[in-house]
């Protein structure tokens, strides 16, 4: 799984960090998303998909590799 984020669409709501804190963080100075892991491990896939689905800015994109 590959994850990308679009900072311009992010509205800093922090949903992704609440759901998958190992994969997403927020910048200290404006709350915009930081991607910690571009290719998260198997065990995190469910949480990452949930974060992408509920992100209010539609800022998270998930693509399946293999």
């Amino acid at each position: 799984m590959k994850v990308t984020v679009d900072e311009d669409k992010c509205c800093g709501a922090g949903q992704c960090v609440l759901i998958a804190p190992e994969v997403f963080d927020q910048r200290e100075d404006d709350g915009i998303v930081i991607l910690l892991e571009h290719e998260p491990g198997e065990g995190r896939h469910v949480a990452v998909r949930e974060a992408a689905a509920v992100c209010p800015g539609a800022a998270i994109e998930v693509t399946d590799t293999e």
């Binding site: 922090g14 927020q26 200290e28 100075d29 709350g31």
Partner: peptide
């Protein structure tokens, strides 16, 4: 404005 204020509402802060 939103980014200035939003800084206070991060998940970590919460």
């Amino acid at each position: 404005w939103r980014r200035l204020v939003g800084k206070w509402f991060t998940a970590k802060r919460m």
